[in-house]
Computed example of a mutant assay.
Amino acid sequence: MPKGYDFISDSPPMYRQSRHTTFEHDSHTALAKLHTFTVDDLPPHKWRNHMYEFEAWLQAEMLKPNAQVSTDLTQFSARFGGILRDWWISLGEYIQALFIQIPDFNQALYLLYDEFCRLPHLYEDQFRYHRQTTIGRKFFVGGNWKCNGTNEEVKKIVNVLNEGQVPSQDVVEVAISPPFVFLPVVKDLLRPDFHVAAQNCWVKKGGAFTGEVSAEMLLNLGIPWVILGHSERRLILNESNELVGDKVKYALSQGLKVIACVGETLEQREAGSTMDVVASQTKAIAERVSDWSNIVLAYEPVWAIGTGKVATPAQAQEVHSELRKWLHANTSPEVAATTRIIYGGSLNGANCKELAAQPDVDGFLVGGASLKPEFIDIIKSAEVKKNA
């Protein structure tokens, strides 16, 4: 397309007339099919990038003979797979219908250019909502050791972690969460590019609270992260949504970073109330917190924790996507775009890569596998996101 080209004044008279003309059914149908491929189906950065790529391709094609355009489109579309491949097939159907209806090839190209240059703008709200893509949300991997380990076992695990070859800190952020009694030794021995996290902390300043550990104590030890609201504490120790929300608020106010856990039971999932449950748990945090920059949200379906069952990539992506939409509607578009939502539940070295490839899965909170050498493989799955 020549620089400075204006569709209204510079296009042929027949084109200016046809842009307001009703299409034949076939081109309408093909165009409607194309419009079903929205950012809900395709990672938004890919949708936007390929729309602009198509725009540039189409500009160049307008200067070529008809036969060459057909060959070029075949070669261009063959590079893609999955939803993109389906999108290009639909694009081909639309082009065929359009060219049959409008014999003037240049006029048809101008109309096609006009139609597809509009698409990114039709979805501008979604693009703003997704303006920081998975590339902008650094992959996060937490290792929750729970109530496991002896002094010697801890040293062996730390040694394995220290020797592991993992992606650099600009690709993945790692936090290791041992039991309270091992926090000092792990912090002293662990490699400097890994953080240390506590598994819980008290809801207010320390005092006459036997058995509790305060946020101030963790900070005094140099511990930057804490896990709050884990399902085992919610279900076994009866921690309510409100208590978890209060804990998150206080921990953040003292300077800790928080891995806040949400997730549904099997009964709740089978009843179809998954999103009601996780939304309610997230709401209790959102009502008390305005700055989400130091929160990682961990979706851990209770039915998948320690059971050997794992949410399918599609199931994990569905909940993560819905959580992000909830944040968009109830906090802000920026919080939704920038907050990392990680997955946990029977994660291992065999299933981590497929889960990591999901556009709204920003990392993992790992239980049993974090005590094993395969935890290194799980950390390495961050490369999947980097190369997406």
Rank of each mutant, 00 (worst) to 15 (best):
T21P: 00
G222M: 05
K353A: 12
R85Q: 08
P179S: 12
L42V: 11
V248F: 01
N200S: 13
E239S: 04
L161S: 04
I100G: 04
E124N: 14
A260I: 08
I378G: 01
P178F: 13
R191Y: 03
A56C: 03
N351E: 01
F23A: 01
K155G: 10
I100Y: 02
A298T: 12
T36E: 09
P65Y: 08
F105V: 11
K33H: 05
E318S: 13
H20L: 11
A304G: 08
T274A: 00
D26Q: 07
F7A: 03
V186K: 13
T21R: 13
V203Q: 13
L91R: 04
N351H: 11
V172E: 06
D40H: 12
Q317C: 04
F99T: 00
I176H: 01
R19S: 04
A208L: 15
T29G: 09
L98W: 04
R118Y: 14
P167T: 14
L84Y: 04
S177Y: 02
T265N: 06
I342C: 03
Y15Q: 04
P359S: 09
M275H: 09
N294E: 15
D41K: 01
V174H: 10
N238T: 09
F80H: 05
V186I: 15
K385E: 10
E152M: 09
M62K: 08
